[in-house]
Design a protein around this nucleic acid. Structure first.
Lengths: 152, 152
DNA sequence: TATTGTTATACTCTATAACTATA
DNA sequence: TATAGTTATAGAGTATAACAATA
């Protein structure tokens, strides 16, 4: 057996090539990068990504219920309560009785909520165009198609 | 002005088409879908995604420091401490003095850690193949390329 | 003076159990 | 009996400030 001790290795440049070959690693990095910019650009509206998603679904689905929001966004009901309360307190949304289900409350945008979301969705469109500038129009469409294929 | 009250609308099928047109929404959904399967398949090794990432970087970069891990993975130093302590307590990794920097400790896989990661990376490869089965080989490569383009 | 690793701590996000009112 | 909305609470993930040892 050898009596010489091996020199202890150290790292100069970190090799991340293995992780970069994994789909999950890349998908997470890309999602975080896009969402980081989204957070910055939505800050003037005081909207987090989840607030934007909720308001956007209410805008395009007037009368949607909390339960439907939870199912669509993968949010657990207890975690939606404070979120909706906060948006109601800001008078961006209003609860109205559901015409078919006495247990449920339909959610609707107020005039202020509609105005805010009109501006916010315009900003979101700018963001998409910004991302698209790094990708060609075809690449952009391809990326969305492949991402959907992964999670659908 | 109208004296008739408008009927209150309700939602039957939720329309998510607007959100589905946004890159951030799709990237996040795809990342969560992939990571969910990753979590399930790594559970037998008692490894969360972040544990796998850390051990994998140590495997491919023997002697890497905590600071280098943090920079590579976007983890803040205080949040890495418990993680590394836990892996050391499980005797999957060992700290050795850094040959060039007395402040730093180099991280190395133990024999057990190497054996575990050999199996875990084999499982990760199976996972990739599984994802690839929903995508063609070309689509898989295209997706990785476009995702990198988004965050690099 | 700057950096590595660390402690303490706070804030956000996510998850589970249990309750009420209604279907 | 099952479901919608809610409360309370616990756990995981992420963030900042500050310190000792070393560069």
């Amino acid at each position: 057996m050898s009596t010489k001790s091996e020199p202890i290795p150290f790292v100069d440049q970190v090799d991340t090539s293995y992780l970069e070959s994994l789909l999950g690693y890349n998908a997470r990095r890309a999602a975080l990068a896009v969402i980081e910019v989204f957070i910055e650009r939505m800050a003037p509206y005081d909207l987090r990504p989840v607030d934007f998603s909720v308001l956007s679904l209410i805008l395009h689905n007037p009368g949607i219920t909390s339960r439907q929001l939870c199912a669509s966004l993968g949010i657990l009901p207890p975690n939606l309560v404070g979120l909706v309360n906060s948006l109601e307190k800001r008078e961006l949304i209003a609860r109205k009785p559901h015409p078919r289900d006495g247990r449920a409350m339909g959610l609707h945008l107020s005039a202020a909520g509609q105005k805010l979301m009109q501006a916010a969705e315009r900003t979101a469109a700018e963001l998409e165009a910004q991302a698209a500038s790094r990708l060609t129009a075809i690449e952009q469409r391809t990326l969305l198609r492949l991402l959907k294929k992964v999670y659908e």
